[in-house]
Nucleic acid binder design. Structure first.
Lengths: 216, 216
DNA sequence: CGTGGTGTTGATTACTTTCAAGATGTGTGG
DNA sequence: CCACACATCTTGAAAGTAATCAACACCACG
């Protein structure tokens, strides 16, 4: 696999890019591009919200925890997408970089009113969340994985080859399944000839129609 | 039970209130209060969105269907709440009155920009949806019912006596469970002394702490 | 060439669904 | 006001799906 677009490779900090978390800084600097290493926290539940986050490259998970450690990832965000709407004054969720991610942070507080631009983005997040409710509430394991693959494929430009930045654990926590069940669903889709697994985090969609038919 | 606040009782159409669906009208009239009988459609998936909906009294379900009839209710809305954000140009979901409901419809198209007022409402819907994802993805049947009761109790003003406007089928379709499982969860909570059932659609929360502890 | 993290597969257990029957409650008509 | 009918809800038993527990495979890294 070439390095061309492999998000697992740590890129050097480029000029004009700040690495975060940085020594001594309590919050990331505003209105510039920050680099978050794989696994690093972008914001935490209960933390004061300062703005919105636009991903230049990399991937992000937004999640919530139960007291016993059960985790629900409410959304993945990929390059080009904007997140951080889980807040009125404070964040209700955690956000972490999955792979190393370069993120532009926009201040929205104490600024000119940005509602007009923000509302459509917020509504897109809302629609996504509501559609995910249908998946979690009414679809079985294999249908959930199918929905996940279709969603990611679509957001990666619709090519049949998908690059998964996240682990099976992340996928499980997004789909409300265990990693074993996710793995079995992948295997079953492979056995049926619907997908091809070219490496653990690379999937090729062979029968797009069959995948779509599982989600109607 | 007194008629005082029983939403199951059909109220007469009051002066200044239009009943809908009405003969000959393709869409409900704008910027006024409409009465929707129990079970009637407020908007449908794919329908052009015309505005937002504020509930004067009654209750509403917003849902989506799979091809085979499986239904996921993404949200219930009670008196005082605003809904209808499941749309960019067209609605992505269905909305129906559960009980007879009186609803004020606000036009948002071709009007002065209302983003500033709308954004906080949309964000509240988003947070609700994302929190519901945790329930559907990571909680078991009894925890889901507990979460549901806490949510409704909170939205009805926090009194220990809850009036449920919706059927067990609706609750099941909201929580991603069958009606039988919902019923069994209610029974188990009753057996544990956490709730009391004063009629099928009336619940009294006896041990609020125990209920809360199931949702941490 | 080990080592640790991640992913896969198998066997068993637990929980929810499905199927079925009975109970409760509401509305209607006598 | 009571009796019946229909819809809704509850409970039980059997079946099915996903979780858990366990072992092994794979891969990147030192």
């Amino acid at each position: 696999m070439l390095a061309q677009s492999n998000p697992h490779i740590m890129l050097p900090i480029l000029p004009g890019m700040t690495q975060f978390p940085a020594r001594g800084a309590a919050t990331p600097p505003m209105d510039q591009v920050c680099f978050f290493p794989a696994g690093s926290e972008i914001y935490a539940q209960g933390e004061k919200a300062v703005g919105l986050y636009q991903i230049e490259f990399g991937a992000v998970r937004v999640y919530r925890l139960l007291a016993d450690g059960r985790r629900q990832i409410s959304a993945f965000h990929l390059a080009g997408e904007t997140f951080g709407f889980d807040a009125s004054a404070r964040h209700h969720f955690f956000a972490e970089a999955i792979t190393g991610a370069s993120i532009r942070i926009f201040a929205t507080t104490g600024r000119i009113d940005m509602s007009r631009e923000l509302l459509p983005l917020a509504l897109r997040s809302l629609t996504r969340a509501q559609e995910h409710l249908l998946v979690l509430g009414r679809q079985n394991a294999i249908e959930r994985v199918a929905a996940f693959l279709l969603d990611i494929a679509d957001r990666q430009g619709g090519a049949e080859r998908i690059d998964l930045p996240m682990s099976r654990t992340d996928i499980g926590d997004y789909l409300g399944l265990t990693i074993e069940t996710v793995s079995r669903a992948f295997s079953k889709l492979r056995e049926k000839g619907i997908i091809r697994l070219c490496g653990v985090r690379c999937v090729e969609i062979v029968k797009l129609g069959a995948l779509r038919k599982m989600n109607e």
